[in-house]
Design a protein around this nucleic acid. Structure first.
Length: 325
DNA sequence: TGCCGAACCTGAAAGC
DNA sequence: TGCTTTCAGGTTCGGC
């Protein structure tokens, strides 16, 4: 499924293939995929037609394309080319569980779960269609207003140095790959909560971009139990956890990058490329690789937690006192 | 106000 | 073989 590294791969693909191009038309094949667009599918299409894509920006798993309508209102102070004006809106995308954004030629057959088709202006022989495909419909697209932020701007990958962010993503905290992410602020927010560590990691308002897989992998790498009370976490433990999150995400990003195809902005949801690197997630019944390396035998267990599956090593990640389930 | 669980959704896999 | 049930999980929203 698309996690932060996959979303970053998509963003880089959009930056290469879509930025600078004009949207000629937008066709909504399933209105459920634009349900976050409050004014409905027709308004969604109308707002996109004629707009120019200025950039591809990401924070956590939210991705957005700032748009210009072509009017020149003297945007030199914004850092954008004068010819395309100031962005007031953006095409925001969340891939949910199964979303894909694909750059394709028009003669490619429609995917079974094709939900939205954008027709792009011809440009140097680049494929003319940007397609949103989503099997489970947890993801979606919307044209949303950009609003100022008081935390230094988007900061995340693809930031265009404007203190603007989609209104619908303004509540999302920075992700650990964000250059402006602060371990001190993260630790302070953790200490201010009275919940378990994994619950906190999955809370996008505390830290964004972490899903079930990376939560389990990072907790394993940091030797922390998912039910550890957040208000007992020390500053060194928080730093160790952040290092673990960054390390596992960067490894996944490297692996995702290798699967990138020049014809596609490819998020196929396949866990295969990263499966080989997983130490805990999905490894129930297998030996803990760290314990094995240290001459012990400990078997990864699967436990039900938060209506999800959680995986941990019973030796490396022991149940804490005052565990918060 | 903060925390927590249900709901949304579809296809694959497992069970019968 | 075919039907039913279970499972997967990111985000939002309502209840406590």
């Amino acid at each position: 499924m698309p996690e932060l590294p996959e979303v970053e791969v998509v963003r880089r693909g959009l930056e290469t293939w879509v930025v600078g191009r004009r949207i000629e038309s937008a066709q909504v094949l399933d209105p459920r995929s634009v349900r976050r667009h409050a004014l409905g599918p027709e308004d969604f299409s109308g707002q996109l037609e004629g707009a120019v894509v200025l950039a591809a920006v990401r924070r956590g798993k939210f991705l957005w394309l700032p748009l210009a309508d072509g009017a020149d209102d003297g945007g030199a102070s914004t850092g954008f080319p004068r010819s395309v004006g100031v962005p007031h809106t953006a095409l925001m995308a969340h891939l949910g569980m199964s979303g894909q954004l694909l750059i394709e030629d028009e003669d490619q057959p429609d995917e079974k779960h094709l939900k939205v088709r954008l027709r792009l202006a011809e440009a140097h022989g680049l494929p003319p269609e940007l397609r949103f495909v989503d099997q489970r419909i947890f993801g979606g697209l919307a044209v949303v207003p950009l609003v100022p932020t008081d935390d230094g701007g988007p900061g995340g990958s693809g930031s265009v140095l404007l203190p603007l962010i989609p209104r619908e993503a303004a509540h999302i905290a920075r992700d650990p790959l964000d250059p402006l992410f602060s371990v001190e602020a993260f630790h302070a927010r953790l200490r201010g909560r009275r919940t378990g560590l994994k619950r906190a990691l999955l809370d996008q308002q505390l830290v964004s971009g972490i899903g079930n897989i990376y939560a389990d992998e990072a907790l394993w790498a940091a030797r922390l139990h998912y039910a550890r009370p957040t208000d007992t976490l020390t500053r060194p433990e928080a730093a160790r956890l952040v290092r673990a999150i960054v390390e596992v995400m960067e490894r996944a990003l490297d692996a995702g990058g290798t699967s990138f195809d020049s014809l596609y902005v490819n998020v196929n949801g396949a866990s295969g490329y990263f499966d080989r690197s997983l130490a805990a997630y999905g490894q129930a019944g297998r030996a803990c690789p760290r314990c094995a390396a240290e001459g012990r035998t400990s078997i990864i267990v699967r436990e039900s937690f938060m209506n999800r599956s959680s995986y941990r090593c019973p030796h490396c990640q022991r149940i804490p006192r005052n565990a918060r389930w």
